[in-house]
Amino acid sequence: MTEQHTNIYNFGFIDEDSKREVRRQLLKAVALPGHQVPFASRDLPIGRGWGTGGLQITMAIIAASDTLKVIDQGDDESVNAVNLRRLLTRTTGVSTTVDTQAATIIQTRHRIPEEQMREDQILVLQVPMVDPLRWVEPNLERATVMHGEADYGRMWVYMYESVIKAGDIRIATQYPVIVAGRYMMDTTPIPRWDVLRLHNADHLSLFGAGREKRVYAVPPYTTVEPLEFEDFRFKTEYAEGQRCHRCGATNTFLTGHFVKSPGTDEPGHWVTSCSDASYCDKQMVAQGWTEAQE
C-alpha cells in the first residue's frame, strides 16, 4: 500500500462503522439462509450495478492476512474484475492470486470456480436482481409478505406455465431455488451449470446487491434445491460434443468466442473455451504447456 492511500482511506475503503453494519446484516443472512436482509449500501468510487454489493461484502470481511481472487464471467483479467481487484488491493494491500486453491476470499460475478472450494474459503457474489418473486409480484411489500408466509404457489404456477407454453422449463438464468427447505432465492447471476454446486457446498457463499441494497447467504452444508417437477427436471446448459478448444475439457462451463486473425482475409470462426480461465490454464500446465507457447 502506498503511503498516500494509507493516509487518505481506511483499510478496505469504507469506514469501520459501515463495515460493521454490513457484517451485522451478513450474520443475520447466514442465520436465515436464503432470506434477503436489507443493508445500507454506501457510495463507492464505482457505480451501483457494477458489483458494489459484492464489493462491500468483501470490504467488510477482508483482513490483511487474506488472499484475494476476483473474477468476472470466470475470467481474472476482464475489465470489471481488474478494476475491483485494483480498488481492493490499493486500499488494503492484501495479496492477490488467480489460483482458486490459494485464495481465501473469491469475489465473483456470474461463475462459481470449477475447482472444488474448501471450508476455509468464502465466495462473494455480485448480484444484479434480488427477488425471485419479481416476475410474479412486482410489489415489493407484498412479495416480502409472500416470503414471510412461504407463499410460493404463484411462482410454481409460473414454472407450470413455462412447461405448458414451451414444453419444458424455459428459465435460462436467474433460476429460482429453495434454500434449506424454506426461503426461495434467486441464483442470479449464477448460470444453471453452477446452481447445483451451491447444494451442500463446503464453502460459505455471500450474495450482495449494491443497487437493490440487499445481502443474503448460503452457509456451508445447506440444501439448495432448484424448482423442478417430477416429470420435468432441472437441466444444466450442455451441448453434446462441445469441448474447450484450449485444454480439451468436456466437463466445464464453456463460453463461445469469435476468432479472426487481424489483417487477413480469413473469415473467422467460433471456438469454445472454459469460462473459468485459471482452471483452463491449470489444465494446460498439467498437459505440459508454458505461457510462451501461446
Binding site: G153, V157, F229
Partner: peptide, 16 residues
Amino acid sequence: GGNVAEKLLLANWRHI
C-alpha cells in the same frame, strides 16, 4: 389450468 393448479402446487404437487 395454471390458475386452478395454484393451490395444488402450493400443497406440494410436483408432477405436471
